[in-house]
Design a binder for these strands. Structure first.
Lengths: 209, 209
DNA sequence: CGGTGTGAAGCCTTTCACAGCA
DNA sequence: TGCTGTGAAAGGCTTCACACCG
């Protein structure tokens, strides 16, 4: 159900335009997917559509928010306060979507105790306490690759079971933990691959990618 | 072939350890995928393995680098110099992988002409000239969502056919252009979804995700 | 033997097509 | 009539299993 957030965003936009009903086709265009897929996805949530009319924006928004667990704030810790970590700490898009950065962790002694906005940078060994005191459920790894596995282990040991990993390395976690990866260099390499194979007849047309 | 960069990174690591032969199983562990998959993927590049022995690290590395188009530097332009854009401009992981940020673009008049490292921030209308003079093939969009579509159009008009989009909105480009998306809020929402449905028996076990 | 290369099976996701309801 | 909800078909990707080779 990785598409629910897309529908959610699309519905928020339509709600802003004071539209209170959308067809699967309209929603599909906004989310950039197929209309049949929208209907199938939404049917899994129960019947929120009216045949011949479409879906009611308000109720559907509430249903999806509930499904995604967006009815309350999620406290987040960022580990690794380099360029990327600092940028993520400042990123407005998180709070707008219900995620609040409540702790910063970095083991570099020169940064320890420093401030980013109102947050003190703390050591990795403070993770268990921070996680407990601030009810942290999500950790973001923005460290160099060679310490990422250790950080992941520390997050797991602190009871944080959802991890977003920006470090360009393979990190393994217990199956009870969910982890998502964002690897910027790999994204560029994939672009480079297609750029390099432009006009390669053996490749599927670009529209299909 | 979105896994080639993973193999590439894994092979670089083994090369550092002065190992010159790897089995598909070893490579699979390093890349975090299935061994059969490694063999199938690599067989598409031709036969670089020796039965009973494994794959020769050096030749395989060169072959993959060639396939990914990593034999030369790729000049990159970053559009949108907010927190994220600035962090990306500083990000070391790009240059280490053959991508060089050669231009910064931002339309905010208060930032125009400013410097980030040695690069001058230029206006969007300079894109065609920059793309031509600096042979830019890849553009990164790190703007707020409401201007992302316009920026994408400008990139395409400037002849840039590979785009990495960080703006949290759906952007459409001609089928001749390849675009990849990284949406940080959506990644967190997906984590939130699984966190919210933890212990939900209707869901597949976490290991399968 | 050990490990690659690969047909075939299995699985999961997407798309089609249309019945059925407002 | 218009659009949802959904079985069935199609397609793509992953995994298995094993023949074959060094």
């Amino acid at each position: 159900m990785a598409r629910l957030p897309l529908y959610y965003r699309a519905l928020l936009e339509t709600a802003e335009h004071d539209v209170d009903t959308v067809s699967s086709e309209h929603l599909a265009r906004l989310a950039g997917v197929n209309a049949a897929q929208v209907r199938k996805d939404l049917s899994h949530l129960g019947s929120y559509g009216t045949r011949g009319v479409g879906y009611e924006v308000g109720p559907l928004l509430r249903e999806i928010a509930g499904e995604l667990g967006l009815t309350h704030e999620w406290p987040v810790v960022i580990v690794g306060i380099g360029n990327l970590g600092r940028a993520l700490a400042h990123y407005r898009g998180f709070e707008a979507r219900g995620f609040q950065v409540v702790a910063l962790v970095n083991n570099d002694p020169t940064k320890l105790g420093g401030l980013v906005d109102d947050l003190v940078i703390e050591g990795v060994d403070e993770l268990p306490r921070l996680a407990r005191e601030r009810s942290i459920a999500i950790g973001i790894i923005a460290t160099p690759p060679h310490v990422a596995q250790g950080v992941a282990d520390a997050l797991v040991a602190a009871g944080i079971a959802s991890i977003l990993n920006f470090a360009p390395t393979v990190v393994s976690v217990p199956t009870s933990v969910s982890m998502r990866k964002v690897d910027l260099a790999i994204e560029l390499q994939i672009l480079s691959f297609y750029q390099h194979h432009r006009d390669d007849p053996a490749l599927p047309p670009l529209g299909a990618r």
